[in-house]
Amino acid sequence: MTHKRWFTPWLLIAPAAVWLVVFNALPAINTLILSFTNAKPLGGGTFVGFANYTRMFDDQQLVDALINSIVYMVVCVPLLTLLPLLLAVLVEKKLRGIAFFRIAFYTPVLASAVVVALIWGWLLNDRGVINGMAEGLGFLSEPLPFLSDRWLLLLSAISLTVWKGLGYYMIIYMSALGNVSRELHEAAAVDGAGPVRRFFSVTVPGVRNTMLLISVLISVFALRVFSELYVLSNGTGGPGGRDMSLVMLIQLYGQGLTGHLGYASALSVLLFVVTVGPMVFLARLNRKES
């Protein structure tokens, strides 16, 4: 005696579906609509056509932010595609205590970007341990202004992102390495290929698809950076506000009662367009292969 009630699946899906509509679909549509208005948090906006988009061309901070994004990607993608793979190979062999090392390497992933930025802000401080030791050992005569120079601040944020990302991508590589054929490795070893040779001719081709996926994930992540730059620059965006990221500009224009929701939304649309690029690239590559 079972009543097959047609609405049971919908009942189970309902909460997630409500969240899908209210917090994903509607905001996405609303962002697009707002980007064509001069909306303020108080009082409705009127239609202004493409004014918010043409305004972008005169926005020097936006140009700086996009340059910062490109630098971020160019440095992060190769480092975070390669270093975590080397780490995954290092923790792959079942040595005594390896579980401890795996967990330890993962800890930077667990920490909030705010915590990580505060820790590195202290390490990179003018009077912090890195400058202090470099001076003490005679490498520097005066401290490097890691947190008050435009490019050094950007590079500091990048190294922080790389440091925090190592363990995350290591885990993804670990599950990919499980699928690399053991026989191929053994055959290569019998043929006299050393570890370096085997890494390049067996491991790398074996995880090629994962490398592509990871480089796309990193590109998107680099475009979305916020907390690292915000906290390292103490919310200021660095000297002259030149160390802003796109998301920092969205927050700057969108927040508070005086916010320019229209311009912030246009910047959000821009963010979407630039992050879709790498994902479309990946989808195309996947389709070509299959």
Partner: peptide, 30 residues
Amino acid sequence: RFRGSKLVLGLFLATLILPSEVTIISQYVI
């Protein structure tokens, strides 16, 4: 099994290409 399950699944998948930062201002409005 239910009518429209493929469509619903597709919608859930589609949200994955939407970084949360893109919709954050409109989420705040909501």
